[in-house]
C-alpha cells in the first residue's frame, strides 16, 4: 500500500444510551484500504462504536454522542451533514444476514442504487453483476437472479448483503460480526472476501473471534468496558500486547 491516508477517524468519541455510557472517549484512526478489527468481550462497546461511525447509533432511542467522527477530515455529525448521504458513503453489514425477503436476488443488490436515483436497466445489470462477482456470489446465483433471496443459504445471504452494501460504491464498509451466524465454510468465504475487498474499500470489522481478527485484519483494537484499551498492528497486538488486559483477553483468560 503506497499511500497511508487517514480515511476515517474518531476524536474523543463517547457514545451514550440515555445516561448510560457505552463507549468512553475513544480516539482512533483508520487508514484507507486497510482492514481494522475491533475485538473485546460482549458488551465492551465495540458494536456501539461501529454504529456511531455511520450514525446508526442515533436511531436507537436515547442514543447520542459527544466527540467527533471524521470521514476524510469532515465531521460527520456536523449539522449540515445528511445521515442518509453519509450512509451511502459508509456501508454496513450486520451480524445476521438481512436480505429483503420479498425481493429477488437481483432486486436486493439493486436496492441501494434505486434509492439514490433512477438507474437505467443496463447500468443496473452491470452494477448487479459486478457487485455479485465482487462478493464471490455471481457463479452461484447468475442463473437465478429472479429467485427470492430467501432461497439462499445463510452464508450466501450474507454475501448477498455484502453485494447489496458495495453496489452503491461506498468508501468504507462496516462489518458487525458478519460471520457470527455462519458455519465454518461460510465464515471462510467471508474472510477471503474481506481480504479482497480492502483493495477498494476501507474496512472496519467487529468480531468475537480472535483467530478471525488475526487472519483478516491489518490493525486490531481491543475494547473493554467501553474503553479502548489498546490499538496497533494486528501482529503486534497478538504477539506483543502492551497492556496486561489485552494479553489476558487474547490468551483466553476472560471474555
Amino acid at each position: 500500500m503506497a499511500e497511508s491516508r487517514v480515511h476515517l477517524a474518531t476524536d474523543r468519541l463517547t457514545a451514550m444510551y440515555g445516561k448510560f455510557t457505552a463507549v468512553k472517549d475513544v480516539s482512533l484512526t483508520f487508514t484507507a484500504n486497510t482492514v481494522n478489527a475491533l475485538i473485546g468481550p460482549s458488551g465492551c462497546g465495540k458494536s456501539t462504536y461501529l454504529r456511531t461511525l455511520n450514525r446508526m447509533h442515533e436511531l436507537v432511542d436515547g442514543g447520542w454522542i459527544t466527540g467527533k467522527v471524521l470521514l476524510d477530515g469532515e465531521d460527520v455529525y456536523a449539522p449540515k451533514v445528511s445521515p442518509m448521504q453519509l450512509r451511502r458513503r459508509i456501508g454496513m453489514v450486520f451480524q445476521k444476514p438481512t436480505p429483503f425477503p420479498t425481493m429477488s436476488i437481483y432486486d436486493n443488490v439493486a436496492a441501494g442504487l434505486r434509492l439514490e436515483r433512477r438507474v437505467s436497466r443496463a447500468e443496473l445489470d452491470e452494477v448487479v453483476e459486478r457487485s455479485l462477482r465482487q462478493s464471490a456470489l455471481w457463479d452461484e446465483v447468475k442463473d437465478r437472479l429472479k429467485a427470492s433471496a430467501m432461497a439462499l443459504s445463510g452464508g450466501q445471504q450474507q454475501r448477498l448483503c455484502i453485494a447489496r452494501t458495495i453496489a452503491p460504491r461506498p468508501e468504507v464498509i462496516l462489518l458487525d460480526e458478519p460471520t457470527a451466524s455462519l458455519d465454518p465454510g461460510g465464515t471462510q468465504r467471508i474472510e477471503e472476501l474481506v481480504f479482497e475487498l480492502k483493495r477498494e474499500f476501507t474496512i472496519v470489522i467487529v468480531t468475537h473471534n480472535m483467530q478471525q481478527a488475526a487472519r483478516v485484519s491489518d490493525t486490531t483494537t481491543f475494547f473493554y468496558m467501553g474503553s479502548m484499551i489498546e490499538t496497533g498492528p494486528t501482529r503486534q497486538i497478538f504477539t506483543r500486547p502492551a497492556q496486561e488486559q489485552t494479553e489476558a483477553y487474547i490468551t483466553g483468560r476472560f471474555g
Partner: peptide, 21 residues
C-alpha cells in the same frame, strides 16, 4: 436497519423494506 444503512430515509425504509415485509 438494513434499509436505513443503505442510505434510505425513514419513508423509503417504510416503502422499500417494512411494508413489503
Amino acid at each position: 436497519e438494513a434499509a436505513l444503512a443503505l442510505g434510505a430515509t425513514r419513508w423509503e425504509a417504510v416503502t422499500s423494506a417494512i411494508v413489503p415485509y
